[in-house]
């Protein structure tokens, strides 16, 4: 446990010594802020219009602003997560520091978990940027808190899952650009799987649909915690980290 935290904090600190940490947070803040602005503006305009027409339309901040906005946050993360994970192991392989880690009295799994948790910590910071905007809605409105928390839980699980995939990809190459690119396309593929099968109901399409990362996000964004989705994310994380540990082990006989 001590070793895991040691690696975790080393990675986390490393993000802020290089520009990556700041870049990822700034990019996210900017794009999310833009999304927040348009979503709130549209909602306010819609509210005015409804009032002028004399209609009593039910308005919900949760449904009309927060839900699409947090879905949007997930989409942005799809682009940012490869930037977070690409250096994790690839960089160590390139500079040879992996030799230090692998010849230290520390187990492979501790290295992997440490790196993944370090990345997760940065991811949480990035996600934290959106809290600033969402908090404003709570200051001037009365949205429901619980579905927001559930949506964040979903984003966290989804991010953890993509980060685990990214960590795995990073162990397979010594080139950061390749690691980032492959991670992005794998995540994109998992994201788009639901498109191919939206109107089919064969067993195969159901399986493919199940593997899509977004379909499992839907319930969370509605404010529903379904065990099925939690199990999906946890098993994806477990599976990716398992692949990572296999891949780390293979470094020893391929090196």
């Amino acid at each position: 446990m001590k070793n895991i935290l040691l690696i975790c904090f080393k990675e986390f600190k490393g993000y802020f010594v290089s520009p990556i940490g700041y870049a990822v947070m700034a990019l996210f803040g900017l794009i999310f802020g833009f999304g927040f602005y348009t979503a709130t503006r549209d909602m306010v305009q819609l509210g005015f219009r409804a009032q002028m027409m004399g209609q009593q339309q039910p308005m919900s901040v949760n449904e009309q602003v927060i839900r699409p906005l947090l879905g949007f946050a997930g989409t942005i993360m799809l682009f940012l997560i490869p930037m977070i994970t690409m250096r994790l192991v690839a960089e160590e392989k390139r500079t040879g520091t992996i030799e230090l880690l692998l010849t230290s009295p520390i187990r492979d799994i501790e290295i992997i978990l440490g790196k993944w948790l370090g990345a997760l910590l940065l991811y949480m910071c990035v996600l934290g940027m959106s809290v600033i905007n969402i908090a404003m809605l709570f200051m001037w409105g009365k949205p429901d808190l619980k579905p927001v928390l559930v949506a964040y839980l979903g984003l966290l699980l989804q991010g953890a899952c993509l980060l685990a995939i990214g960590t795995f990809v990073s162990t397979t190459t010594r080139n950061q650009i390749v690691a980032g690119g492959v991670t992005f396309f794998v995540s994109l593929l998992l994201w788009l799987l639901s498109w191919f099968t939206a109107f089919e109901s064969t067993v195969l399409s159901k399986v493919i649909n199940y593997l899509s990362i977004v379909t499992h996000m839907e319930n969370f964004s509605k404010g529903v915690v379904d065990t099925k989705d939690v199990v999906f994310y946890l098993s994806m994380i477990f599976f990716s980290l398992f692949l990572t540990s296999r891949s780390m082990e293979s470094l020893r006989w391929r090196a």
């Binding site: 490393g14 010594v17 290089s18 500079t95 040879g96 520091t97 992996i98 030799e99 230090l100 010849t103 230290s104 009295p105």
Partner: peptide, 16 residues
């Protein structure tokens, strides 16, 4: 590993 100190050909340093 506990009993060994190892300096590889390229020192394993973190430049940052």
């Amino acid at each position: 590993k506990r009993r060994i100190g190892y300096l590889p050909e390229t020192p394993p340093l973190y430049p940052e």
